[in-house]
Amino acid sequence: MTRHPAFANAHSHVFHRALRARVTGGDDFWGWRERMYGVAAVLDPDLLHDLAVATYAEMRLAGIGVVGEFHYLHHGPDGRPYDDPNATGEALIAAARAAGLRICLLDACYRASGFGSAPQGVQRRFADPDVDAWAARVAELARRHRGADDVVVGAAIHSVRAVPPADLAGVAAALPEAPLHAHVSEQPAENADCVAATGRTPTALLAESGALTSRTTAVHATHLTGTDVAALGDAGSYVCLCPTTEADLADGIGPAARLRDAGARLTLGSDGQTVIDPFVEARAVEMGERLTSGRRGSFDAVALTEAATRTGYGSLGFDPALADADAFELRTDTVRTAGATEPLWAATAADVEPPQDLAYGPDEVAVLMRKAVGAVWERV
């Protein structure tokens, strides 16, 4: 056994777990999104909670100590708030606690379906009436959990296509000391639409609005200009890479080494839960660089471990030292890790020794997952 700092899953959409190995339709991100919307349409707070308990427990088994939940499934199916406007957010926080996981609940502002277009269909669940209403709701959620050692409430800009330029500064200012995350340049079409509508790239738009700072995490950041890379580095922003999801959705391979060299701080996330395995995500950063550059060795095991653990904790508003406090035992005698001097290059989540204080063991998690996923698809 060797002691390993706990991983930070810096970007998660927990309800996407219901899509794993079930939905392959759509030949690009936008086609896949329609299938995802079908799942989003049927979730209520109770079913979301049950699916999240199982998914967060799977993360815990994989050596993850904290999750950044990028949360936009706010309201009822017709867009009307629940009796508690933060019912779904509270369901996610309760699920993380049940699984023994710290959580940064990143409440995402969502105001439009695209530049100049109102939310349509299931998107009405994601949207608040205006940015002030969103800010008041998220401020109340933050107030409830202020001082908790296992919960941080942060803010998120869903994307520049979903938050009008005039509202970006308001979102950035809503929780001025908390983490601020945003989907950035995941797709070329997003960039093209942004430039056509505003004359700026998404990164430039965020920078101009004051939303690009050292507390900002740009998620994906796959399709960046050289100026974008420099802006993220100059701001000291975090960039969260989600390699398995970016591969699953045919998004592309982001410029990880260029971002690092510019001064951006890299973190990792499971995003759409294609797999929940931080070892796989970490290795994929280096492997992606090898494929695009034709060279080996852009990232060593130390750098990847730092990105996947302590830097991720910091991006979610937690003390990076908690990654060591939450450390797990990694088996070094398995068929994968035996003989390895740097286990990061060989290990998988299956090599994590389950902590003694786990609320749910592997068999129990499998039962919970089958039940929750089955319930979702009975409704879709």
Score class of each variant (00 low, 15 high):
residue 241 L to W: 04
residue 182 A to R: 10
residue 233 G to R: 05
residue 242 C to T: 15
residue 183 H to R: 09
residue 214 S to N: 07
residue 190 E to W: 01
residue 209 S to T: 13
residue 214 S to V: 09
residue 240 C to L: 14
residue 224 L to T: 00
residue 191 N to Q: 04
residue 244 T to C: 12
residue 185 S to Q: 09
residue 201 T to M: 09
residue 192 A to Y: 00
residue 211 A to H: 02
residue 232 L to K: 08
residue 199 G to S: 11
residue 210 G to D: 11
residue 238 Y to W: 14
residue 244 T to L: 06
residue 203 T to C: 12
residue 192 A to L: 13
residue 245 T to M: 15
residue 193 D to S: 08
residue 208 E to I: 01
residue 234 D to G: 14
residue 224 L to K: 07
residue 184 V to N: 01
residue 239 V to S: 02
residue 246 E to N: 12
residue 246 E to C: 11
residue 223 H to C: 00
residue 179 P to M: 13
residue 187 Q to N: 13
residue 236 G to N: 07
residue 200 R to Y: 02
residue 239 V to C: 04
residue 199 G to D: 02
residue 246 E to V: 11
residue 201 T to V: 12
residue 178 A to N: 14
residue 232 L to N: 02
residue 198 T to I: 08
residue 213 T to V: 08
residue 206 L to R: 09
residue 238 Y to T: 07
residue 199 G to I: 02
residue 230 A to Y: 12
residue 245 T to D: 14
residue 209 S to P: 09
residue 202 P to A: 01
residue 226 G to P: 09
residue 197 A to G: 06
residue 209 S to K: 05
residue 206 L to A: 10
residue 204 A to E: 15
residue 226 G to V: 07
residue 205 L to W: 02
residue 208 E to W: 01
residue 192 A to D: 05
residue 187 Q to W: 06
residue 187 Q to K: 13
residue 225 T to N: 08
residue 234 D to Y: 04
residue 239 V to A: 07
residue 221 A to S: 12
residue 224 L to P: 06
residue 203 T to E: 03
residue 185 S to F: 05
residue 190 E to C: 00
residue 225 T to Q: 06
residue 189 A to R: 13
residue 219 V to Y: 00
residue 208 E to Y: 01
residue 220 H to W: 01
residue 204 A to C: 07
residue 195 V to Q: 01
residue 187 Q to R: 13
residue 195 V to A: 04
residue 226 G to C: 12
residue 204 A to M: 09
residue 200 R to T: 01
residue 210 G to K: 13
residue 205 L to S: 06
residue 201 T to G: 13
residue 228 D to R: 04
residue 199 G to Y: 05
residue 222 T to Q: 05
residue 237 S to F: 03
residue 205 L to V: 11
residue 242 C to K: 09
residue 212 L to T: 05
residue 247 A to S: 14
residue 195 V to C: 03
residue 211 A to F: 04
residue 180 L to A: 12
residue 243 P to G: 14
residue 193 D to R: 05
residue 208 E to P: 10
residue 237 S to N: 07
residue 224 L to Y: 03
residue 236 G to D: 07
residue 233 G to P: 11
residue 229 V to N: 04
residue 229 V to P: 07
residue 192 A to T: 06
residue 208 E to K: 06
residue 207 A to K: 08
residue 232 L to E: 07
residue 190 E to M: 03
residue 188 P to C: 02
residue 178 A to S: 15
residue 237 S to I: 10
residue 190 E to L: 04
residue 186 E to K: 04
residue 192 A to H: 00
residue 207 A to F: 02
residue 247 A to L: 13
residue 205 L to Y: 08
residue 197 A to M: 08
residue 187 Q to A: 09
residue 233 G to T: 08
residue 238 Y to P: 14
